[in-house]
Design a protein around this nucleic acid. Structure first.
Lengths: 212, 212
DNA sequence: CTATTTAAATATACGCGTATAATATATATG
DNA sequence: CATATATATTATACGCGTATATTTAAATAG
């Protein structure tokens, strides 16, 4: 709570003391922190970069970071949010086609290609060391994230020839996401192996899913 | 490596210096550490108990613990091993019956009952805070642990009327373990809800699995 | 009994994330 | 221009797990 603000009773009279940082300035600082953190986390790994190191790179002291973020994990979760924003912005840009099955395939292919073309993002989100399961769950429980995956649910529902009840839809959606991740994960982490084309793998997976 | 031992070239001649602690003494100390840790971890949670606190309870200094264990996580993983020893000792004591399906049900019921009767063990193994996924995976990748779950694989194979190939067996085994854990987990963590009898739930699950 | 040697235990130190206290800065007031 | 005040930043401190250095203990040699 800001007592000075409450004293003002809404009137913007001048008042003493150092003025609070403007929202624009705050966002600028948060963005700088996030950008520097992403760069360092990508280069050297989340666990390897300390708050002291991050602050040093930015040119402030460690405790300054806590004015803008709740803590080290908060910085990482913010980067996760940015990555998902980026990803879903790309997916939302795909226009639904006449053929629902074709659109689902296009969407799924784009999802896998996003991770293949942004392996840094993939490692940051799915392979950060020293992160506990509850820390991941808290992030994923955000209704925003779950809602965004419904673009796949909607596409899947439209592409299914038979009506799917909610349980069936959820099962197939879960399976779809698992398969797409499997394709992306294997191509990224076992890249030396001569995998089938990711686009082909996605197509076969969608065909099988719709036929099931 | 122990250079003094290598100097002796196998002959047990007296030699200078403080003698190494006997294996029996070492095991005694390891057991004391494990027992005290289990008690404290059960009472207050793994993350809440520091190595300093554990040492204090035992009556030594923190660095002494490192003579017997690789670190804090090593202590926890040793406790996990003890719990699985206890569990599988109970399961191995069950004699296979003439009816393979009945034996599978008995075995599965015993598995669930073990966790229900040892909720402390369940929380220690499955609900320790501050443990990362790789730390769990390293423990579970131990061939001993995986091999011990094959008692269920064998029972399931014997109880199946149709021959199962390896993929089918693995799928059903994975499903069985997931279901049994679901039963145990819900009874332990949502214990206020009036669940159906765990024995009944196990029976229905096995019937369904064998009929699939 | 003293000196030497080896192992066990302890003391000290380190960097970590972050809590708390102190200082610097940017404003208004007189 | 000096003072007062509110905020932003920095300095200091804490407990953590654990690396490293030092001390203590337990033995043998002479």
């Amino acid at each position: 709570m800001n007592p000075a603000m409450s004293k003002k009773t809404g009137a913007k009279a001048p008042r003493r003391g150092r003025p609070a940082m403007s929202d624009a300035k705050k966002e600028e600082m948060k963005a700088l922190i996030a950008k520097t953190a992403q760069q360092l986390f990508n280069e050297e790994g989340y666990a390897e970069i300390s708050m002291r190191r991050l602050a040093q790179e930015i040119g402030c002291t460690p405790m300054t970071l806590y004015n803008y973020y709740g803590g080290k994990l908060d910085v990482l979760q913010t980067l996760w949010g940015s990555v998902f924003d980026d990803l879903f912005r790309a997916l939302d840009a795909l226009h639904p086609e006449k053929d629902p099955a074709k659109y689902l395939t296009t969407l799924s292919t784009a999802y896998v290609q996003y991770w293949l073309q942004h392996t840094d993002h993939y490692r940051l989100v799915f392979m950060a060391e020293g992160v506990t399961q509850p820390e991941v769950s808290i992030f994923l429980d955000n209704p925003d994230i779950i809602a965004r995956f419904m673009i796949f649910g909607d596409a899947l529902s439209n592409a299914s020839k038979h009506g799917l009840d909610q349980d069936q839809l959820k099962l197939k959606l879960d399976l779809l996401i698992c398969v797409l991740h499997g394709i992306a994960h294997n191509h990224i982490t076992i890249s030396g192996y001569p995998w089938s084309s990711p686009d082909d793998l996605v197509r076969v997976a969608i065909d099988g899913l719709l036929a099931a």
